[in-house]
């Protein structure tokens, strides 16, 4: 298939960026979106032009590195699919495809389509952990966990931290990510002792990083490659309210 690509090119964080148009011929329908970009880059290199920089790692939909906004939708038009798992058969011959980086103040563009997502790491560092003493490994089944809680925690843990939620949100809010990471631990007995502290810390880090506020559009849920639901955000809203009140009385765990 033959395609026209409209790709965001930006030499560095400080430099201004702009769209470049590339025509690319005879792309196999079976290639993945990233393979299509590999082909583009090889042809650019042959012509002596600089390749388009983009993030990727596993190409299996599990690491969360790939981060392309394709025709305005993070990870492209397929639901529950990362950009690396998106195949060219979902496009038509002759299509013009617009490829942009994630757009959010806390995710500055490093180069072309690569953005810096360390703001997410800082949210995790502020509370996305459980404190465990060293020593003999505890028996995994010593603490019974209701099936419903285990399932909910697993749904939350499916988050691969790609940042598509932020990219899709008209407000560039990081609520889906933060709520998934907090809920994963807040739901389980092992995470409960630090629940209030975790919730308050992760939300305040999220705010301090400059992400927007959630206004319940639901775009994050729609683009999430792991189908994380808005239920996580509702839970964080609830947990934060409880933690705030307990904090007021010096009772936050």
């Amino acid at each position: 298939m033959n395609l026209k690509l409209k790709v965001w090119r930006q030499p560095s964080q400080e430099a201004a960026g702009k769209f470049e148009i590339y025509d690319i011929e005879s792309v196999s329908e079976d290639s993945s979106f990233l393979e299509m970009l590999d082909i583009l880059n090889e042809r650019l290199l042959e012509k002596g032009e600089g390749p388009v920089h983009f993030d990727h790692d596993c190409r299996e939909g599990i690491c969360g590195m790939c981060s392309l906004t394709i025709d305005g939708i993070p990870h492209g038009p397929e639901r529950a699919t990362t950009a690396c798992q998106l195949h060219m058969r979902h496009f038509k011959d002759g299509d013009t495809i617009t490829i942009e980086p994630w757009r959010a103040k806390p995710f500055p563009v490093v180069k072309d389509l690569v953005v810096d997502r360390t703001a997410f790491e800082r949210i995790i560092q502020s509370g996305g952990y459980v404190s465990v003493n060293t020593g003999a490994a505890p028996d995994g089944n010593a603490i019974p966990i209701p099936k419903k809680d285990a399932d909910f925690a697993m749904d939350a843990a499916a988050c691969i931290g790609c940042g598509a939620c932020v990219a899709a949100c008209p407000n560039a809010s990081a609520m889906l990510f933060t709520s998934a990471k907090a809920s994963q631990l807040n739901t389980l007995p092992q995470g409960r002792p630090e629940k209030d502290r975790r919730t308050l810390a992760m939300v305040s880090t999220m705010d301090a990083e400059g992400f927007g506020n959630c206004t319940n559009y639901g775009e994050c849920e729609a683009v999430c490659p792991k189908e994380i639901k808005l239920d996580m955000i509702a839970k964080l809203n609830r947990d934060f309210a409880v933690a705030s009140v307990k904090n007021l009385f010096g009772k936050a765990g």
Partner: peptide, 27 residues
Amino acid sequence: LLTIENKRARPEGYADNSTVQATYASK
């Protein structure tokens, strides 16, 4: 406040502003 902060969180917008499921009312 929400509007100001949300605008500030996305200084550079997208060329393609598609949305998937956000309702007209919400937007």
